[in-house]
Design a protein around this nucleic acid. Structure first.
Lengths: 344, 344
DNA sequence: TTGAAAGCGTTACCAA
DNA sequence: TTGGTAACGCTTTCAA
């Protein structure tokens, strides 16, 4: 069994209160007593129980981090950034993959509450506005990152998805594309919707349009679905000369679709991704994509959350950071009068 | 404040013992009382505190998962597989990135103990054999995955790294390569060492050799260092015609090095990775790599650990699964009498 | 400067 | 069947 403060107290011939004080650097304990207690703690390999401390009102030093899928490099990178941000403060992360499913989200949310995490960082979309109510009403410090829920009064740090989509569209427009399609995540993912809105807005401003049948929504298997949806797009009568994908995984799928159909990228088809994950840099050809300032975003949520933990009062700020287009080699000017690549 | 069993008991006009029993489905409670209690729990939105329960000897339903870096797709994929494996059982994962640093490992190990996790899964190398002693001696169920520590009596599930390295070497040999080099992780990473041993063994068996100066060890920035080390290799007098990289990230770096030096892959240089992460499939050209059976591995550790949790006694089995070479397009026969590609 | 004792939210044992 | 109550390991008054 693990040693407790009782063991330490007995061994050191003092009361448990003394041990507790030494542990927390509080109260006044004489030098010698303090040293003696430290000695015994080391000797017994005493590890104070965070559990027991938490029960008395102290923190658990554990944060919940909810993402759609930790194996998606974008979220893995976010997780790492958040981890690095809080590790020095003694916090650990409980990472939960929701698959964008409300039931999984709910399950994890109650689990995290029952496990008394100090705060929750949510990087996954939320459909049901009421989902967070239980958390918030109990005063759980909560913040959203990279995703947001409208009409929810909760601290939020996001990239400007609309602007990101618009930047992608402008890039494509500048290259001369006029026939642009979109592959998005399931239509419930708001950030995807915002990105599409950005694209559409920009196209309309340029006198073009983005008809609904040129927007395809994928399921959960991002790469595979991205490929499948891109195929649909590329095999129709009036195939687009450029596809904007709402994340890098989908873009990778589109890349594969093009390869399978012997459509050259970027000569015959331009593809733009989103997130600027490592995949974008590694893909063939390297993917033009929209980068979110993930490091700043992570740093910011953690700061906001820590404030909230300290002041006990919700901060509820909404911070929007600007994304940036990273041009690589998956985009170029369309070939002259290129109306499509039917591959019967 | 959150509702407690006291609140529920008072509201339902029963004792806390009754509430506790209902909560755990134990003891004998009359139907009506039980239903009434359930009603009150729902009404109060009562969430039992795992913390408090843990203090009385029950489990925390939390597992620690230690990996070198959660943003490395290989480990992110492992994390996801483990998560899926345990989620149904009510467990959450505390994920910790060690960067292969012993001090970070140690820090996290004591943190996890203090937070009373039920078990620890270690997917990161351990240099100091004594590092796990405190854990093990306190009876913490522990298992290693994808990494191992020799002379440590602890449950282990690994891929046969030696065989993996050998498979890579045989593949290269079969293609006709005779001048093969290696880029490895820092020399402290045992699995890397085993893979190299496999390569060397196979080369020697074929009448060739793997001189030490053809084995380069990277630092922590895997891709960048992989690139840098590959450059060193490629720019020397007798550049190799093939490079085996101890993981996909390093291989990606090697790919970049080749690109920078205008060396064509696979025509002028073959590259083999390890892990078969998503990066390998996405790279340009797609990477020939050695796949570990990660899903089976994860499933197995979890089963072993759950046994250990149930029977209270360490299982300490060592399970070795066979890896498999996945041939893609980063390897081919060397060009005839190709002795090197000086790029002075 | 030190110690005794009252919680914190559960569980589990023992009476009733 | 039920309820009272002593743990569990720690923090935090409050006295001494």
């Amino acid at each position: 069994m693990r040693a407790t403060i009782y063991d330490v107290a007995r061994e050191a011939g003092v009361s448990i209160a003394a041990v507790s004080q030494v542990l927390n650097g509080k109260g006044k304990i004489s030098e010698e007593r303090r040293n003696e207690i430290f000695r015994v703690m080391a000797k017994l390999n005493f590890q104070p129980s965070v559990i027991a401390a938490a029960l008395t009102g102290k923190k658990t030093y554990t944060l919940g981090l909810l993402v759609p899928d930790i194996s998606n490099p974008f979220f893995a990178e976010i997780a790492r950034a958040v981890e690095d941000q809080v590790h020095g403060l003694g916090y650990s992360l409980m990472i939960c993959s929701t698959d964008n499913k409300d039931d999984r989200l709910e399950r994890y949310l109650t689990l995290l509450q029952q496990k008394s995490v100090d705060a929750v960082i949510i990087g996954t979309g939320i459909q049901d506005t009421q989902m967070l109510a239980p958390l918030l009403s109990k005063g759980m410090p909560t913040a959203m990152i990279a995703r947001e829920t409208p009409n929810m009064d909760v601290t939020t740090v996001v990239a400007n998805d609309f602007a990101g989509g618009a930047a992608a569209a402008r890039h494509l427009l500048a290259l001369g594309h006029t026939h642009i399609a979109v592959v998005a995540e399931r239509s419930r993912v708001r950030s995807s919707l915002e990105r599409i809105r950005g694209v559409r807005h920009t196209l309309v401003e340029a006198g073009l349009s983005l008809p609904d049948d040129l927007v395809k929504y994928s399921g959960d298997a991002l790469i595979k679905d991205g490929k499948y949806k891109a195929m649909e797009l590329l095999q129709c009568e009036e195939a687009p000369t450029a596809i904007f994908c709402c994340n890098d995984l989908l873009a990778i799928g589109a890349l594969q679709a093009a390869k399978d159909l012997s459509i050259r990228v970027p000569e015959d088809l331009s593809i733009v991704g989103f997130d600027n994950t490592i995949l974008a840099a590694v893909a063939d050809p390297p993917l033009t994509t929209v980068a979110q300032p993930t490091d700043v975003m992570c740093k910011t949520v953690v700061e906001l959350l820590m404030q909230q933990l300290k002041h006990q009062s919700p901060v509820n700020r909404r911070i929007v950071l600007e994304p940036e287009l990273v041009a690589r080699q998956s985009t170029s000017a369309p070939r002259a009068s290129n109306t499509g690549h039917q591959t019967t």
